[in-house]
Amino acid sequence: MCTFSLILHISLLHLILYEAQFFNSTYTTNMAVHIFGKSVKHNALVRIGLAKTIFGVGYPTAQEICAKVGLYPQMRMNELTEPQLMAINKELGKMKVEGKLKQEILENIKLKRLIGSYAGYRHAYGLPVRGQGTRNNANTAKKLNKLDRRL
């Protein structure tokens, strides 16, 4: 029993060491790069990839993140090292993006409905909220504005 546990420990140690060598290596493969739980195309510019993939990150914000982390403007996703990926994740973690942002938007809509505002009524009835006409089209509003609104 003791021997078995020793073998198990050694094999686990080997596995950790094997993973560690990839952990420190630079990503230069054709595999997608995962940032903030999202996969980004391997050959996309970092600032473009972030803006296109992360909800709540546009081009200026992506550029800001790159400047903070110290990434050069023409850097591509597959050139990111593990510490740089972690730094980007850390910066994104400080910001209100993805789930948190979506939740906030939905809560705001919900509040408008709750207080009985005109915008809330329009949201609930699937009509345009910001004064757009309804004679023709209004398809976006019909598609999105529902009682159980999702983003």
Partner: peptide, 8 residues
């Protein structure tokens, strides 16, 4: 100048 090199 145009951002093709890394910087520190």
């Amino acid at each position: 100048v145009q951002g093709f090199s890394d910087y520190a």
